[in-house]
Structure formats: structure tokens, C-alpha cells
Amino acid sequence: MLEPIRQVTGRAVYVPGDDIDTDRITPARYLKVVTFDGLGEALFYDERFNPDGSEKPHPLNDPRFKGARIMLVGANFGCGSSREHSPQAIYRAGFRALIGQSFAEIFFGNATTLSLACVSAAKEDILALAQAIAQDPSLEVTVDVERLEVRYRDRSFPVNLPPTAQKALVEGRWDPIADLLEAGELIDQAAARLAKAVRS
């Protein structure tokens, strides 16, 4: 059994913009690696740094948001390539939950498998929270995966998560390998029945 992810609590940072693609989250040159170690540094690299290495204004460069565990994002976050390097980089940079309007499908699956909770919420609610953290970067935010709500101060708003992902996180089944291996013979039966490409 893996660690159940019932809720994520911590400080939050808002990274605005819709259709943020995986090339922006982790530029392709950071994919020339044979492990995922150290990818946290690649996170949003070209958005955060100029070609000469100097910093650009970016929420993740803002010292007030250092150590945030929750990222607020826009719509269709993580579109583009299937590179798991993107959620890996987000996870390795210390994030444990994302609150966005919507997520691209492959990204969402990859993130969930790493126990990175991606909950979706209404734009107004995200913007209100973004405003609250802009005023008080030390604000403690809770993403409640079990009750499907986000809480901060005396406020809360509902979030969505497909039931399969919610179950996987809350029951500590976010990495499916153990469940998949259990199928045992059923797999062999399918393999015997289903076509394969053979050179003849």
C-alpha cells in the first residue's frame, strides 16, 4: 500500500495562463536525461530565465512563494507532449497538488500516477484564491482530495476530480503497478487470444 493522499496543505503560488504546454513546463533540452533526478530545476526554465541565465519576473522566482506546495493554474494545463518529465519536474520542485480550470489528459494521468493531485475548479474560485495569496503569500491552503474542496482562511470552494483518480489517491493506489500485476493469468489469456505483429 502506498501513502494515501487525502489532503494537501501548504502555501500556494499562482502561475497564470491557459494552454500551458509541456514544452514550456520542461523544455525539450532537459529531456536528454536517463533519470528524472534533478528535473525540478528545469521547471518552467525558459519562462523563468533569460538565455543569459538572468532571472525573468515569474511567480516561481518570487522569494515570497518559495516552498509552495500547491500551484494554481489556468485551463488545459499540460497540453502537448506526453513527457512525464513535466509532472516529475513539478513534483520534484516540491509541489503536491495543482488547482486548475482543466488539465490535458495525458498530463493528468502522469501526474496522478506520481500522487500529484490535479483538481479542477471554477475560474472565479481560482482567481479569488490567487488574489488572496497575492495579498498574503504565507496563506495556508488545503486541497481536500477526499471531500473535493479547497479551503483557506474561512473560505472554501468545490473542486472536481474523476472518481477513479480520487479513489486512486485516497486509497493509496495511485501507482497502479501492483494492481496490474495481480491480473496474472488473465493477461496471458489475452496475450494468447489477441493479435501481435510478427515478421514473416
Binding site: E84, D175, I187
Partner: peptide, 17 residues
């Protein structure tokens, strides 16, 4: 199109979730 952890799943089990 799948992520790397799923590549592992398919290698190990020829199945995925």
C-alpha cells in the same frame, strides 16, 4: 500516447490502467 510510468506498466504487464 503514454507517460514513462505507463511505459513501465506496459513493459511489465503488457497492460495499462
Amino acid at each position: 500516447g503514454i507517460g514513462t510510468t505507463q511505459v513501465r506498466d506496459v513493459l511489465a504487464t503488457q497492460t495499462m490502467a
